[in-house]
Deep mutational scan, measured.
Amino acid sequence: MTFKLIINGKTLKGETTTEAVDAATAEKVLKQYANDNGIDGEWTYDDATKTFTVTE
């Protein structure tokens, strides 16, 4: 399955996707991606669209 991350950061905005077997696995990968890029904020997840959003 494809999961999307929408980034609403102070210095970085955009989106990325990852392939994962489930939402929990995708969340780990996407949170690591955000952490690697210095993004720390509030996370939400929409199961209907398989989209995570992080807002700083």
Rank of each mutant, 00 (worst) to 15 (best):
F3C: 01
E27S: 07
G41W: 06
A34I: 06
D22E: 05
G41Q: 01
T55R: 06
A23L: 12
K13Y: 13
T11L: 14
A23G: 05
A20S: 08
Y33H: 06
T25N: 10
K4C: 06
K31V: 08
D22S: 08
E19S: 11
K31G: 04
D47V: 12
K31N: 04
I39V: 13
V21T: 10
L12F: 15
D46G: 02
T25R: 09
F3E: 00
A34E: 01
N35L: 15
F52T: 00
Y45E: 00
E19R: 14
W43G: 00
E19F: 15
T53D: 02
T49E: 07
T18C: 06
A24P: 10
E19V: 15
T44V: 11
N8Q: 10
Q32H: 07
G9P: 03
L5V: 04
A34C: 09
L5T: 01
D40M: 12
N37W: 13
T25P: 02
F3S: 01
K13R: 15
T44F: 11
I6F: 07
A26L: 02
N8F: 12
F52G: 00
T25L: 11
A34T: 06
I7P: 01
I7N: 02
T17E: 11
K28E: 09
T55F: 09
K28H: 09
E42H: 10
E42K: 09
T25M: 11
I6E: 04
Y45G: 00
L12R: 04
E56T: 09
T55I: 08
K10V: 14
A26D: 00
N37Y: 12
A48I: 15
E56V: 14
Y45V: 01
E56M: 07
T51F: 03
K28G: 09
A48F: 12
D46N: 11
E42V: 15
E27T: 04
T2C: 07
D22C: 04
E15N: 04
A48N: 12
G14R: 12
T49N: 08
N35I: 14
E42S: 10
F3Q: 00
A48R: 13
K31P: 00
N35A: 15
A34M: 06
A24V: 13
D46T: 05
G14M: 15
V29L: 12
K31A: 06
K13A: 10
A20G: 04
K50N: 12
T51C: 04
T44N: 14
K10N: 15
G41L: 02
I6H: 06
K4H: 09
L30Y: 05
T16G: 04
Q32W: 06
A20F: 04
K10P: 10
D46L: 05
